[in-house]
Design a protein around this nucleic acid. Structure first.
Length: 213
DNA sequence: CAGAGGATCGGCT
DNA sequence: GCCGATCCTCTGG
């Protein structure tokens, strides 16, 4: 498979991850995801992808989690099996992509906060605006959903088998991972549930949250 | 049924 | 740095 064929450069093979490859536990999964690829396939055959550089864990006991007060129609995929997309709409303007974690019936997920563009730059720029910098294409949970054309249609998608979306490993060395409090919350800001690739130029949030950026 | 608030973004000062 | 946009979801009466 040639994910970045459009750039004409080196094209290392990538491998789609399955449930057997990933940790069930939310914090461990959030850390594990740093350095892996999110790959978006469109029906017309075009592809875009990005390397995960920033995540946040929403654990079962977390008052800031959508799942904290129990299951509702919106958050039901958080309570399903792990490795399913949980996508919600926020502030009337943005979608956010999560990957569910933990066992069936346990409400938890990891928010994908930022990706480093790897392939499909032209597609993403056409969605984000022709003048948008590479650095900003996938920086922030709302922007990455906008660039990758992800909305509520993806809620419940199984990362193991969905044609449109996959989680993959391209064999790249695991980056150094830093931690910090999470972004944009009014509760539970005292726990380091945010994980990021140290030194990455593609992170969201204030600089003080990623001092090694 | 009304009201409040939200895991954000972009524009402006 | 601050603020408004914009709308979905949940809660309470």
């Amino acid at each position: 498979m040639r994910v970045n064929a459009e750039r004409g450069g080196e094209c290392p093979p990538i491998r789609r991850l399955t449930r057997a490859d990933v940790p069930l536990a939310t914090d461990a999964f959030a850390r594990f995801l740093i350095g892996l690829l999110i790959v978006r396939h469109w029906d017309d055959g075009s592809v875009a992808s990005g390397r995960i550089v920033e995540t946040e864990a929403y654990t079962p006991d977390d008052p800031a989690s959508h799942a904290y007060r129990g299951q509702t129609p919106r958050n039901r995929t958080m309570f399903g099996r792990n490795m399913h997309a949980y996508v919600y709409f926020i502030y009337g303007t943005a979608y956010c992509l999560n990957i569910s974690s933990e066992e069936d019936d346990v409400g938890a997920a990891v928010l994908i906060r930022a990706l480093e563009p790897v392939s499909g730059h032209a597609i993403m720029r056409s969605r984000r605006g022709p003048r948008s910098a590479d650095r900003d294409l996938l920086r922030g949970p709302g922007r990455l959903c906008s660039a990758l054309d992800i909305d509520r249609r993806f809620d419940g998608a199984d990362f193991e088998s969905d044609r449109r979306l996959q989680l993959a490993d391209d064999g790249r060395a695991e980056p150094e991972v830093g931690t910090s409090p999470r972004i944009g919350l009014t509760k539970t800001i005292d726990v380091n549930h945010r994980f990021y690739a140290r030194g990455s130029k593609f992170l969201s949030g204030e600089r003080r949250l990623s001092p090694d950026r």
